[in-house]
């Protein structure tokens, strides 16, 4: 099938701010654009988002479409899909990259049907070879990597956050900005309110560092030491399913197939033995540190750095050591 031309990166905003993974898409998109010798475009959607156009251009986009409308302030499955689909149909983009966040995955699903366009969900790699676009994604809790190929004129991938580095700013880079009118029409989903949760904490999905706790902490109080270390190094707090099910910490902290998939540079697993569902959510992390009394457990076997011992004893010592070093460095 004759492919459409051009790559579109979708810049979703949440609570008025661009999601950080959008700049990661620019890295993936720029590589595709250079391989294919096609232009890289981006679209940014929200209620007041035009300021991001310059940012996108400086980070690699050749052209930025700005769709500003009050109805796009909060993610709405139908309206966001309508806005992006209208743009893709008008401009006949060949490839559409979306970050695989809650909103991005919902958008990708709606677009694949609306545009009759193939979709690779949660891609961990997107590349072009001699026979077309390919995307890799995990299945079966990460035990299987499947390679997706496309047979449609437009091809969509939702890309796992933290898979690609964020595109750097290149001062003075120029490009075109186009404002696009949007008529939402009748909306069947009405946004009522937003309840922020633990806003002082780093979001798991976008975290470069995660300190995660499991059953080995003994009880819910064990998470105090996890949070102390997380705060000391600017990390997000993760957890295994077992402790979430036990009510030690809310579900949103759960890492794994049933919870969130994460790809931080550093993952510190404390008292987590490493059930396959948990490993599925974090095995792509850069460096994995495991702290566990059982050297034979799956997490200790998989770890880049394994420390045999009790997390409750080791965590305060590690946090104190880090604080002492930082204090010494600052002095």
């Amino acid at each position: 099938m004759e492919s459409n031309k051009g790559i579109l990166v979708v810049g979703l905003t949440q609570r008025g701010k661009l999601i950080p993974a959008a700049y990661e898409l620019l890295t993936a998109g720029r590589a595709l654009a250079d391989t294919l010798k096609e232009p890289l475009a981006a679209v940014v959607l929200g209620s007041k988002v035009s300021d991001y156009a310059k940012e996108f251009i400086e980070r690699g986009a050749d052209k930025v479409f700005v769709i500003e409308h009050a109805s796009l302030e909060n993610f709405n499955d139908e309206l966001h899909a309508k806005a992006v689909a209208e743009l893709v149909e008008k401009e006949k983009f060949g490839k559409v990259l979306i970050a695989a966040t809650v909103a991005g995955k919902s958008l990708g699903a709606r677009l694949t049907v609306k545009l009759k366009a193939g979709l690779a969900a949660d891609a961990t790699e997107v590349y072009q070879n001699g026979t077309g676009l390919k995307a890799k994604r995990a299945q079966f809790s990460g035990n299987i990597i499947s390679e997706v190929q496309f047979a449609s004129a437009t091809q969509i991938a939702t890309v796992q956050p933290m898979t690609y580095p964020r595109a750097e700013k290149q001062a003075g880079r120029t490009g075109e900005t186009v404002s696009v009118a949007f008529n939402p029409g009748f909306a069947r989903i009405e946004f009522v309110s937003f309840q922020a949760e633990e806003s002082n904490e780093v979001d798991l999905g976008a975290a470069e560092k995660i300190v995660s706790g499991g059953r080995g902490l003994g009880n819910a109080d064990g998470f105090k030491a996890i949070r102390d270390l997380a705060h000391a190094i600017g990390a997000a707090v993760g957890a295994s399913r077992a402790v979430v099910d036990s009510g030690w910490i809310p579900y949103r902290h759960q890492v794994g197939l049933t919870g969130r998939t994460v790809r931080p540079k550093l993952y510190i697993a404390c008292g987590i033995s490493g059930q396959i569902q948990h490993l599925a959510g974090m095995s792509s992390s850069g460096t994995i540190v495991a702290i566990n009394p059982d050297p034979e457990c799956p997490m200790m076997q998989m770890a880049s750095i394994a420390i045999q011992g009790d997390a409750n004893e080791l965590l305060p010592l590690i946090t104190a050591e880090i604080k002492a070093r930082k204090g010494a460095a600052a002095a």
Binding site: F75, V102, R188, I189, F191, F194, A196, E197, S199, G205
Partner: peptide, 15 residues
Amino acid sequence: MMEDGTDVLKVTLPA
């Protein structure tokens, strides 16, 4: 459930 909290939505049925 979103990454940063909870959206409350009023949805017209069927959905």
